[in-house]
Design a protein around this nucleic acid. Structure first.
Lengths: 234, 234
DNA sequence: GGCGCACGTTGCGAAATCACAAACAGAAGG
DNA sequence: CCTTCTGTTTGTGATTTCGCAACGTGCGCC
């Protein structure tokens, strides 16, 4: 791989507890790759040839149903792994990963996974912990979808995004990448129409501020109350 | 642990590729435990002291929301691991596991996980593959909940159950443990009322046959068509 | 600087699903 | 054999959410 910001890499939880010498070896076998906005990191159903770490940018992980409907499974932020299908015994990618903005990823041949995990136990353990966290997240999402109605689901989704990628701005916390009503709908299992209505309603109550491909949470605490269903109506 | 059916254990995919001597060591440090129907294997929020393999019976994994609603995350059948929170870096159980019928489990101290995975790599790998499969399952479930309406979700849930635990009977494929309308509702994010209506409708069309705590799929193929949304209405 | 287009908003009727309520049925236990 | 309890069925009206359609609007390209 080429020259990279080592201090950035060193600080990632994923690489915590790995001896510098080992880390060097790990990085040596990686390829750095640049993905332009809207480009694919990998595609659903494609052979799982590599696994990745996102170094810069934002990636959207999307599952498409046989009849063409799309669901956004999660957003990936720098420092997270993606495409770890191989590590989990699968040989095709179960979803597509799309660059939301220009991105930089590190890529390793998927076949190397077993050697990797054996040679650098911390790396393996760290990754599995991340998977564990992810499994938990997804299960929580199932519970949400099963028990909450749309308004609360959308509120939760926005709050999660602010946690992941929130950036303080003068008006509140900005979700730090372009996101459309359609995207939010695909995260929460609803339609862009319903999302649009919710956002305008919330804007009138001073909870959020939204524009084209952009959402700012103005009153996170009140939005949380709403998400938890403990906010008095209108 | 006491005397156990070794041939059963040997045949589990979880223990595939493990040298007999190693398997002995693994089993030596396990405790066999019997859980009566409706008893807990572990409880949500409790300290994750052990991880388990189900040897006999059926276990329901349930997540309870702060406001008391329950969601059935999955059913566990013999040979599967459960409570692997520790292996994934968590120290409390994220859900409860309840014996649906009388069960037998093997239990290991959760603290042993790291040694285990290191000493018996196949065991670790097998487990992680199972986790991978599970992550995939849950994500598929999210997609279903996001894109399908109740009728198809319930159909899918029943079909999954028949795959996992289906038992041929004279009238079709029987789901091989007691399951109520309420249970099915909690698997699919709907109400027992809606499930009840669906089952009676399907029974009239000759797709299923149901009784108290019991469902038999009479025409799996047609139910699959319905689940896929490719069955003509009425 | 104007035009086209992708994204967003909004109104309205339709459909799915829930919520509440009442009645029923079969199993278990005394 | 009767009683009780749990699980189930079913009706009705209320809500939520969708689907469609029309209409805005700001961004970026030519």
């Amino acid at each position: 791989m080429g020259r990279l910001d080592r201090s950035l890499i060193n600080s990632l939880p994923l690489f915590a507890g790995i001896a510098p010498a080992d880390l060097d070896k790990i990085l040596e076998s990686a390829t750095s790759r640049r993905i332009a906005k809207d480009g694919f990191v990998f595609e659903q159903g494609g052979e799982a040839t590599s696994f990745f770490v996102l170094l810069d940018g934002r990636v959207r992980v999307v599952k498409t149903t046989p009849d063409g409907q799309q669901v956004i499974v999660r957003y990936i932020v720098p420092g997270e792994v993606l495409g770890i299908a191989q590590a989990l015994g699968r040989n095709t990618y179960p979803a597509s990963a799309i660059a939301v903005v220009d991105c930089v990823v590190l890529a390793w041949p998927g076949r190397q996974w077993p050697e990797f995990a054996a040679a650098f136990p911390s790396f393996g353990t760290n990754t599995y912990k991340m998977i564990g966290q992810r499994l938990d997240d997804v299960q929580t999402q199932v519970v949400e979808m099963a028990t909450e109605q749309v308004e609360r689901r959308v509120a939760h989704a926005l709050l999660r995004l602010t946690q992941q990628t929130g950036k303080k701005s003068s008006e509140g916390i900005l979700i730090d990448f372009p996101i459309s009503r359609q995207d939010i709908a695909e995260m929460t299992g609803t339609t862009l129409h319903t999302v649009s209505r919710l956002l305008t309603a919330w804007e009138q109550k001073g909870l959020v501020k939204s524009a084209r491909q952009q959402v700012t949470i103005v009153a996170p605490h009140r939005l949380l109350l709403l998400a938890e269903g403990r906010l008095d109506k209108d």
